[in-house]
């Protein structure tokens, strides 16, 4: 069957099987930033916006998405022009294997749209269903808090180094990386 989707502002007609889930359909259509880490909509890796609401795409039946507007990680920044959340993730070394990261950034975007100045607890609550095996969440939480500051136009509070090499960071013995208080 065919369904109509608006994906990242582009209207598309896509062919789906009745029991396809939205994550599979998006991936088959080239949106491979949508990741799949589990079997049943519990890891958060496949999060996308469906009509402005964050959903785990693997838990959405594709036929039910007919007519909806989808935004995936591919719609945020580009490599040369990162979205502030993406930029903060890079600057804070919040990315390791990266597999969970697109879903986490989508969730962070949704959080910061509603709550521009979140507390650490609110950030943790927001990404509570974005499982990450690599980071222990410490740096992603720091990155999201910093992204909030950046998006509100405040000075970056990154103490974990920026995208530029900073000579004052040369001595790693003074480097405690603690920016969460």
């Amino acid at each position: 069957m065919e369904i109509k989707l608006t994906i990242n502002d582009e209207s598309k007609t896509v062919e789906v099987e009745p029991d396809d889930d939205l994550a599979t359909v998006l991936r088959q259509n080239g949106y491979t930033g949508v990741k799949c880490g589990c079997d049943s909509g519990v890891c958060g890796a496949s999060k996308v916006f469906v009509d402005d609401e964050v959903k785990m795409a693997c838990g959405v039946d594709a036929p039910n998405a007919d007519g909806s507007e989808i935004r995936t990680i591919e719609a945020l920044g580009t490599q040369d022009d990162l979205h502030p959340i993406q930029e903060a993730f890079v600057d804070h070394f919040a990315v390791q294997c990266g597999f969970c990261i697109p879903g986490m950034i989508i969730e962070a975007e949704s959080l910061l749209a509603d709550t521009p100045d979140p507390s650490e607890a609110e950030v943790r609550e927001a990404i509570d269903d974005n499982l990450c095996r690599c980071t222990g969440y410490q740096k992603p939480v720091e990155a999201i808090l910093d992204a909030a500051d950046r998006m509100r136009g405040e000075q970056s509070v990154a103490a974990d180094g920026g995208s530029q090499i900073r000579p004052d960071q040369a001595d790693c013995t003074d480097h405690d990386g603690d920016t969460n208080e």
Partner: peptide
Amino acid sequence: KFDDRKLVTGQ
């Protein structure tokens, strides 16, 4: 991290 820009943009 050299692959970060690709990782955060889903590329």
